[in-house]
Each structure stands twice: as structure tokens, then as C-alpha cells.
Amino acid sequence: MAAQAHAIDYDPERNYDEDTLAQQREIEKEIAESQPLISSLFTFDDIVEEYTREDEVYRHKIENLKTRYANLRKTRGDGNCFFRAFGFGYLETLLSNPTDYQRFLEICEKSKDELIALGFPQFTLEDFYDTFIDIVKQVKNPGQLEKLLETFNDQGLSDYFVVYLRLLVSGFLQKNEDDYIPFIDGERTVKQFCSQEVEPMGKESDHIHAVALTKALRVPICVEYMDREGQTCNSFMFDPTESPEESSPKPALTLLYRPGHYDILYPL
């Protein structure tokens, strides 16, 4: 009844965008209160309960994952999960890998000037970069896992980190425009795609985002796709190397994809 009355009262000159945004904020708040940005470690027995007992396909796949992975961390379903899972998961591996840390730091330090050269506004870019690089530098010293977890669960810091990763993806796609234009749907330029689907917070990541991020930072990742097809998860390797000779078959980190969402997997 109420909904109907509302429809009749529709006023074309009233701004309903704000109502929609307010409703969206309510939903976001509910999710934020129930899910941490990056969770502590879970076992697969914890997530098996998320599926009904009748759901044989998923249960079977989880059993299979258990033969290869020990734990997982869940990320908040806020549209930024791919970037946050990548960011936390990869920095966590750097805590025990000083060689890779050095390599990664150099790439990150170079990225700022590259993005400015591509036309990103220096003033705001620097703001994100400063926070981003401070967080990267946190993992220079081993044993900082608790602090890293705290940082990634601080909404402000964690989101700044995600923004910078989004800008890296946008920059990479714009720099390699010719290679990626065939993968962009609709009548959009790469720049338009980036401003609509990459840079805004909360826009979900697709295959193209994962390709660009892993190539921009030269970090190989594996994604285990868990959907209703087949008997086991499909694993897909995002390998940033161009030629087979130098390809590194070992992923730096593995993510679990369930339709619409990424979490972090920890091998046995």
C-alpha cells in the first residue's frame, strides 16, 4: 500500500538520488557492522556451514580445497574485496620475503611519477600515495602481522590503500589502451571505462582489473573459482610475465572467488 502511494506521488522535479544514496549507506552500514574488512583466519569447516547441507556441488568443492589449502581470511563484501584481498594478502607474504619486498617497494616508488605523467592530478594522487607507501613500508620488518591486520581494518587507511591500487589499474589500462580496448564493453573509451568502473570506490572487479593489477605490480596471483560448474574449483593463474621462459608458475598469493566475492586462501 505504502509503496503504491509513493509511486503515485512521484515528483519528477524532486531529487530522489539522495534517497537512493541514503538507502545504500544503510545497507553498507549493516554490512560494515557484521563483517570486518579483513577477518582473522578461518578453517574450511567454518565456511562449509554457509552452504546448506543439500548443496552437494559446493560441499564437494570445499572438501577438495581442503586437500590443498589450510585456511582462509574473509574480506568485507563492499565491492572493494578484490583490491583489499590482494593488498593485505600480498603484503602479508612480504613480511617473510625481504627480497620481494625490495622489488615491490621500487615498483611502488616509481609508480607515483608514472601516474602523474599519465595526467592524474598530482595534488590528490600524492595524498593517496603517501598513505599507500607508508603502509607498504610497514612490512619491512617481520613480525608486524598484527599491525598490518589493524591497518587493513582501519577504514580510512585501508580505503586509501585500495584507492591507490585502483589508480594503478586505471593508469595501467590507460597506458596500454590499445591492448585493452577490445575487452571493454559498450561504446566506451578506456579512459571512460576507468572513470566508471575502476576509479570509483565500491565498483566490483572483473577479469580485466585482475589482469591489470597483477601486470602493473608484477605480482603473479592464482584465483580458485568456486561456482556450480564441474566437480572441483577452476584455478586461473594471473601471470604478469610476457614470455613463457621467464614465467613464474608459483603464485605469490591465492584468492578464492565465489560469485561476486574474493577471499584470501592459505596453502597447506
Binding site: E13, N15, L21, T124, F128, V163, L167, S195, E199, P200
Partner: peptide, 19 residues
């Protein structure tokens, strides 16, 4: 709009944190 609010894409779905 009549209440002074503005219909502009960058203030809604095309907002970028770089603004």
C-alpha cells in the same frame, strides 16, 4: 533541483577519489 541539489554524474556514480 528545486531544493538546490545538483544532478551531476561526478557527484554520484562517476565520483573519483582523485577529485
Amino acid at each position: 533541483y528545486a531544493d538546490g541539489s545538483i544532478c551531476l554524474d561526478i557527484l554520484q556514480n562517476r565520483w573519483s577519489p582523485t577529485y
